[in-house]
């Protein structure tokens, strides 16, 4: 999950955040968590496609997939086909 955290930081240009400061179960989109916004959500979709060749076909899955780094990692593990 450390690699995924580093990829999120790079993709979203979170210059004042370190992988160590992101909790595995920390909410990504609440103010108590990382406080990401709707544009960040689109960038996370790009990240999944670029790094893991995963396309999200059902938008309703988004909130569940992007709940935390752990839920993202679980989704990647379950759906990864070819790793870039």
């Amino acid at each position: 999950m450390t690699d995924l955290k580093a990829q999120i930081i790079e993709q979203l240009n979170l210059q004042e955040v370190t992988p160590e400061s992101i909790g595995d179960d920390q909410p990504l989109f609440s103010k108590e968590g990382l406080g990401l916004d709707s544009i960040d959500a689109l960038e996370l979709i790009v990240l999944l496609k670029q790094h893991y060749n995963i396309s999200i076909t059902n938008p309703e899955e988004g909130p569940k997939i992007f709940q935390s780094v752990r839920t993202m990692a679980e989704y990647i593990t379950a759906n990864q086909t070819v790793k870039a």
Binding site: L12, I39, L42, Q50
Partner: peptide, 9 residues
């Protein structure tokens, strides 16, 4: 390659 939403805005 991949259009950047963050740049687009």
């Amino acid at each position: 390659e991949f259009a950047s939403p963050a740049l687009f805005v």
